[in-house]
Design a protein around this nucleic acid. Structure first.
Lengths: 171, 171
DNA sequence: GAACGATATTTGAAATGTCAAAGGTTCCAG
DNA sequence: CTGGAACCTTTGACATTTCAAATATCGTTC
């Protein structure tokens, strides 16, 4: 933070460990968060401008797209990391737009299964292709080897975080 | 997509590049997003349980904490990556809680400057310390060298994304 | 077969999020 | 000194978000 430190790089504190600041984890987190926000906002903007869709809707449809038989709302909630109550409203709006269908199976009337309509599949298919292209574009300046490495190492972070949650977890 | 490919791993397509799937950027993005969501939710839960605060409030206060003179709302909006209209409400609620003060400087009456109250500084200070500890805990299983590497490489991603935005950018 | 615990979804209150439009202010050209 | 462009914040309409409480259904136990 103070600018007196930048002059003494490489002298006392060299490679590993303290680097020039402690709080490495904090700094990583802040950078992850801002980067994710940046990408999210860009995707949101493009989904809106080019398809009139929202990011949560896209996420939800992505889950349904790979499960043609549909998914129960609770399962959708887990996969999208969105709370139950939220899924209800999301699916409601998508149903109103004719992209998703809600069915209650005969066996268990507590359950609601959501599945894509034909219109939903067509619609999502187009968005998914564009979406993938946007990401490739946005990350175009990053060496593919680095992308791979990041994928692996962020996996390690996710794993560590999963093992240190406070609530009732286990997943 | 087709399952006929999984048998020929390591034969034609070996190390770099195609790996076993294309869409490396997409997969990195999905992993970044889910990891960020996971950490956010954990932090949100702890902020709520231990301090009765929300994550956006914490973020906003963090910006004000390092600028004791306060920040204009527009500047706050940029730094927190939150829209103008949103900042208005956020600051309103924080002011109602006595954590933030709103002042209109004499020079320019278009401007509103927000700054932490003494209570706000005390409150944030405690949260920040805890927050840093939570992150260290959550990432405890990750080698510090990897954390450093991630910090650097995600910086590269952020930089690439910044250079490929569609809207009016330049930051 | 009525009650109870477990499961699944919805609802309601409050906060956060976006965007676009509207309100004030300031500044500058004419 | 007046009109309009530029700047800053607020407002309003909606969508998303979380949490907790309420509903509804199922399955089992006595």
């Amino acid at each position: 933070m103070t600018e007196a430190e930048s002059a003494s790089v490489d002298l006392e504190i060299i490679v590993q460990g303290a680097q020039e600041g402690k709080k490495l984890e904090l700094r990583l987190w802040l950078r992850m968060l801002s980067t994710t926000k940046l990408i999210s906002q860009e995707i949101r903007r493009r989904l809106r401008n080019e398809f009139g869709a929202t990011l949560p809707q896209f996420d939800l449809m992505a889950q349904l797209y790979r499960e043609r038989e549909g998914l129960r709302l609770g399962e959708l909630s887990k996969r999208t990391m969105v709370t139950n109550g939220n899924v209800t409203g999301l699916v409601e709006r998508l149903e109103a737009d004719g992209l998703v269908l809600r069915v209650t199976p005969d066996g268990d009337r507590r359950v609601t299964v959501a599945k894509l309509t034909e219109k939903g599949e067509t619609s999502f298919s187009a968005m998914a292709a564009a979406h993938e292209g946007w990401l490739r574009d946005m990350m175009a300046d990053v060496d593919p080897a680095i992308v791979s490495e990041l994928w692996r190492d962020i996996g390690a972070v996710k794993s560590s975080v999963s093992n240190h949650l406070s609530g009732t977890d286990f997943d």
